[in-house]
């Protein structure tokens, strides 16, 4: 079914993805010669945060266990490259696939849990995976696995990983935008706001929620796979480090959950703080915590959430409007 969007000749919002691609690519080309590593990490963490935001901010499931997918994506990629000798770029498919499959198994275990029970349940599963990989001899147990260096072409490798990270970030942003503007987006937000009310207007709650969970898992898996591809090595305490989840949580909460702009802003703030206090050691963690607390007190909906509430600015608007109001209304 195709929905028409109002009577406007050209919907200015429709060109936004194109603008985002153009800005992203030119920013990428500018950053590329300078500090690729940091830019790449920012793009990947942003993608994770936006994927998580789809689940938490738009579907209403607060996951504390998405680091599971970062680690799984990394292991899936490195192990398939080492075992099958295929190109690491193709192995990204394995990262996504493994995360989708594990997400489906998790749903079987967690599908009756809501709110804090879900959050803690998935956290336990993520930590169980860390312990499992720590015991798994073939996957290097607690020592981790090193990527078979013969699988990569060192000359172009760093550039390729960077452009893939940029592609993932852009695809995530535009994909979420398109998804949320569709009928499915309406369903997800209805489920977030009132699960029973959503079912009563014909929305398949379980199926839509599952879709959001699987998509967010796949995005985190791809980002995790790319990140650990760039460092050529993964171990359980790094790949399944809850610090990934904390980063995501900080970025989305500070930026604004349930907004598409929030994670962009949050990522800039997170890395800005980190670079600013790079030499300050543990002091940095104190500043990070303080920032999170201050933002939550002053702007419970995140910084972009507050800006949006006051100004009604939306760079990526997913609001449905029935077109121009008729005269006399």
């Amino acid at each position: 079914m195709k929905l028409s969007r109002g009577q406007m000749m050209v919907d200015p919002r429709a060109i936004l993805p194109v603008v985002a691609i153009a800005v992203g690519l030119s920013a990428g080309a500018l950053v590329l010669p300078i500090d690729r590593r940091l830019a790449m990490e920012m793009l990947l963490v942003f993608a994770m945060a936006q994927g998580w935001n789809l689940l938490c901010g738009y579907t209403g499931l607060l996951s504390f266990g998405h680091h599971a997918f970062v680690g799984l994506g990394a292991y899936a990629l490195i192990l398939t490259v080492n075992a099958l000798g295929i190109s690491p770029y193709l192995s990204l498919g394995a990262s996504a696939l493994v995360c989708v499959l594990v997400a489906l198994v998790m749903v079987l275990l967690l599908h009756r849990m809501r709110d804090a029970y879900f959050s803690i349940g998935i956290w336990v599963l993520a930590d169980s995976l860390r312990l499992l990989f720590g015991q798994w001899e073939w996957a290097g147990s607690s020592r981790g696995v090193v990527l078979d260096a013969s699988a990569i072409d060192p000359a172009a490798f760093a550039d390729n990983v960077f452009w893939l990270a940029l592609a993932l970030a852009l695809t995530t942003q535009i994909g979420t935008y398109v998804l949320l503007r569709s009928r499915i987006g309406l369903a997800l937000m209805a489920i977030r706001d009132n699960e029973n009310g959503a079912a009563s207007v014909g929305i398949a709650v379980a199926r839509n929620r599952l879709a959001a969970f699987v998509i967010s898992a796949a995005i985190c898996g791809l980002a995790g796979g790319l990140y650990y591809l760039s460092v050529l090595y993964v171990d359980p305490s790094g790949g399944f480090d809850i610090d990934w989840q904390i980063k995501i949580l900080f970025i989305v909460m500070v930026g604004g959950a349930g907004t598409l702009e929030g994670p962009v802003l949050g990522t800039l703030i997170y890395f800005g703080l980190r670079e600013l206090f790079r030499d300050a050691g543990d002091l940095y963690l104190i500043f990070q915590g303080a920032t999170a607390m201050i933002v939550m007190l002053l702007a419970p909906n995140g910084i972009w959430g507050s800006i949006q509430a006051r100004t009604n600015w939306r760079l990526f608007s997913i609001r449905w409007t029935p077109g121009p109001q008729k005269p006399g209304e």
Binding site: M1, L3, R183, L186, A187, M189, A190, R192, D193, N194, N196, G197, A198, S200, V201, G202, I203, G258, R319, W320, T321, P322
Partner: peptide, 20 residues
């Protein structure tokens, strides 16, 4: 049981696009 984060219009549209 309103969908609090959606507009009045979207609340009704959600049912129209998912209903019979």
């Amino acid at each position: 049981r309103p969908f609090a984060g959606l507009t009045v219009f979207e609340n009704v549209l959600a049912g129209v696009v998912h209903g019979a």
